[in-house]
Design a protein around this nucleic acid. Structure first.
Length: 257
DNA sequence: ATGGTCGGCAACCGA
């Protein structure tokens, strides 16, 4: 079972690239974030034409998540249990035996802002959501754009960027509490190198060429699922040696019978 | 150099 995550930064702009990527990589499910489209305008037909189907929750201009899969998704839920009017940042579904939770975690703007508090609270709500809906013994993958570089290996200048919203002690604590539910970082099962990134800021001149990046996109698995994880890799296009957007996809393979 | 560049969408907001 091949599962991928990609912050697309507009699914409509990225559509031709996504279609090509799906046809080449053939994942069982691709979880996307920042679709930036209302549900009525989601380009689901384009995916159906190549043998995929999509579930999605979006809004105008901002946020929005989707899961694009070959097989039909079951037990679909949009957002947290008790707050249907919240920003569209979470989709839960089940694909065969695999439970999937796709999240676009708030970025947080600045450490002393309301948006940063919203980010921290979001983690607490997410932990409640996991406790309510799952057990650590379930086959559960939690993936998406987390807007966190977990360790000093996961961003280009940990000292200079220390305390920024995606590399902040409060965010690290908040993430750890959710990880303590029973999650394992699939990428770190297979790779302990520093400077392996999934995001490069457009605003930094030649940021990608200079590898001024962050590892913000993650695939976390509960222990029984992590035991079945045979590979996890960050996808830089081997032909162009480039990334498709400001983010790049991350892919994990699980041997599930 | 407190900037830079994208995307949405039509003036700025978000990242």
């Amino acid at each position: 079972m091949k599962i991928a995550s990609f912050n697309v930064n507009s699914i409509r702009t990225r559509l031709p690239l996504l279609i090509e990527w799906l046809q080449k990589n053939q994942p069982d499910a691709l979880c996307v974030q920042e679709t930036k489209v209302q549900d009525k305008d989601f380009p689901k037909e384009a995916f159906e034409e190549i043998g995929y189907q999509a579930i999605f929750a979006g809004q105008k201009s901002y946020n929005g998540v989707a899961i694009i899969s070959k097989q039909k998704l079951q037990k679909i839920q949009y957002g947290f249990d008790d707050e249907p009017k919240d920003q569209p940042r979470l989709i839960k579904a089940k694909l065969g035996k695999l439970n999937i939770v796709n999240t676009y975690i708030p970025q947080g703007f600045e450490p002393d802002s309301e948006k940063f508090q919203y980010k921290l609270e979001w983690f607490a709500r997410l932990l409640n959501f996991f406790k309510k809906n799952f057990k650590p013994s379930d086959l559960l993958v939690w993936l998406g754009d987390f807007n966190i570089a977990p360790t000093d290996k996961d961003l280009y200048d940990p000292q200079g960027l220390s305390g920024s919203v995606c590399y902040h002690p409060d965010v690290h604590k908040a993430l750890q509490k959710v990880m303590d539910f029973g999650f394992v970082d699939c990428f770190r099962l297979h790779n302990d190198q520093a400077s392996q990134y999934t995001f490069w800021d457009y605003r930094l001149p030649n940021g990608f060429k200079r590898n001024l990046g962050w590892r913000l996109d993650h695939i976390m698995a509960t222990k029984p699922l992590a035991d079945k994880c045979t590979a996890c890799l960050i996808d830089i296009d081997p032909r162009t040696k480039d990334r498709p957007s400001d983010h790049t996809p991350i892919i994990a393979e699980f041997k599930i019978d």
